[in-house]
Write a protein that binds this DNA or RNA. Sequence first.
DNA 1: GTATCATTCAACTAAATGGTTGAACAAGAA
DNA 2: TTCTTGTTCAACCATTTAGTTGAATGATAC
Lengths: 112, 112
Amino acid sequence: MVEQEIYLNNMFHALADSTRRDILARVGRMEQSIGDLARAYSMSFAAIAKHIDVLVRAQLVRKQRRGKYQVVSLNPEAVGAAQEHLERYAMNWNQRFDQLEHILTSYHKPAL
Amino acid sequence: MVEQEIYLNNMFHALADSTRRDILARVGRMEQSIGDLARAYSMSFAAIAKHIDVLVRAQLVRKQRRGKYQVVSLNPEAVGAAQEHLERYAMNWNQRFDQLEHILTSYHKPAL
DNA sequence: GTATCATTCAACTAAATGGTTGAACAAGAA
DNA sequence: TTCTTGTTCAACCATTTAGTTGAATGATAC
């Protein structure tokens, strides 16, 4: 599988969970330690740590050790890249939207 | 869980697979029957049918029976909605980008 | 040093995912 | 009606996921 595909798989998979999207929003507002984040959810520390690892694998956040703490912060470069991918998807869809609407609202002849 | 969250979970999960993204691109170009799609991949008919069901659940495509065939087409409304969600994410990220970059490039004092 | 707090790691479970096969059903063609 | 093609459904399997607990490791404070 192409690297790009793995990247997109990881990114979309990371986004496909409410808790992880919430963590993303939280660290977007302010960087926080894993413990800070864990305290915000009714889930074990280990569970939250795993969610964070999924976000790290997707390159959406970074972990940086700062003394005793591991601080989680949004990864600006990756977030920018993610946006581009999402927009590229959106763009392709836009390009095809008119043509699609045309097909869909006119008589449907089998695509065979 | 809020309906909106389930919707986003389903949508991102559907996008988190290369085969499904490819199917999406294909039906974006031209609506096709399940059989047409299945023939395009080195995977069983049933496997592709399942992938399509995931896309249907995410409301990214529609299935419409047309005689013997079940025709799969991009769902324009949902694609529009999906775009909005993605853009909303992107927008939030953009809003915070400057502020984040500021935080990240300046001295990191613990968020505690 | 020891104690304490934050994190990581390993082992385990339950459920979901992605795939298979084969049987049953639906619809058009002969 | 029978035949053929397209789709659905059910059962099954292997892997991954999302969660748990508890032990081990890191880093600071005393």
